[in-house]
């Protein structure tokens, strides 16, 4: 019953490690998009124009309550219908970036809300423009407060990258699929993928907790 072959594991390990690199690149690139776009969305939810706020709110709600895999398909297939050809990598990065930007915008919002009102008033008293207030007073204080949430979603993105395999991005799961169908053996590739995910996400989650604790102590919380 138990037919685990170590020599097969050693044989496929280099390919899996190479694919792990791709997975990490995908997670990193998607995260960078999400970090920037998330902040834009969070700020757009705070403008004085009611219609902009409402539209952004609805968009965030919509993206957050629909499946990422469907969004990946949507972006990958709808572009060509209107003459925009996106590579699997590009559409995957856009989908993951936009999806997580909506989650991160909530994290940023929490961080911005946690900045005491007195800070805003002091910035107004110093005759700062809105732009200056955000850039020099509010955001530098909001980011440390939202670090834990930001870190958790980095781990979250990493765990969602296997969905990119459905549109043919050569990440970890895609490679495991390929190895499995070439050799008619799925036990080792899928199990190794699980182990690699654990080996990266557990230490990463631990690191996030450590940073969170450190920042909390530094900020005197």
């Amino acid at each position: 019953m138990f037919d685990w072959r170590w020599e097969f594991v050693w044989q496929i390990l280099p390919r899996l490690i190479e694919a792990t690199g791709n997975t990490l690149i995908a997670a990193g690139a998607g995260y960078c998009i999400a970090l920037v776009l998330g902040l834009v969305l969070a700020l757009a939810q705070r403008t004085r124009h009611r219609w902009v706020n409402m539209a952004v709110n609805e968009f965030v709600e919509f993206v957050r309550s629909t499946p990422l895999i469907l969004q990946i398909f949507f972006i990958f297939y709808v572009g060509p219908q209107f003459g925009i050809l996106l590579s699997p990598w590009a559409s995957g990065m856009i989908a993951i970036g936009v999806h997580y930007a909506c989650y991160l915008s909530e994290v940023y919002r929490g961080g911005i809300d946690s900045v005491p009102k007195g800070q805003w008033e002091a910035a107004t008293a110093l005759n700062m423009t809105t732009m200056q207030k955000y850039r020099r007073v509010v955001i530098p204080q909001a980011i440390p407060a939202s670090l834990a949430g930001l870190g958790n979603y980095l781990v979250g993105i990493f765990k969602d990258t296997p969905m990119l395999s459905v549109i043919g991005v050569a990440e970890l799961l895609h490679t495991a699929n390929a190895i499995g169908s070439e050799n008619y053996r799925f036990l080792e590739p899928y199990t190794m993928v699980g182990i690699i995910f654990l080996a990266i996400s557990l230490p990463a989650a631990g690191l996030v907790r450590m940073v969170e604790g450190y920042v909390r102590r530094r900020m005197g919380l």
């Binding site: 765990k159 969602d160 990258t161 296997p162 799961l173 799925f186 199990t191 699980g194 995910f197 996400s201």
Partner: peptide, 10 residues
């Protein structure tokens, strides 16, 4: 610590 897709396939 692992992703749902991987668990599903497994």
């Amino acid at each position: 610590g692992t992703s749902l897709v991987v668990q599903l396939y497994w």
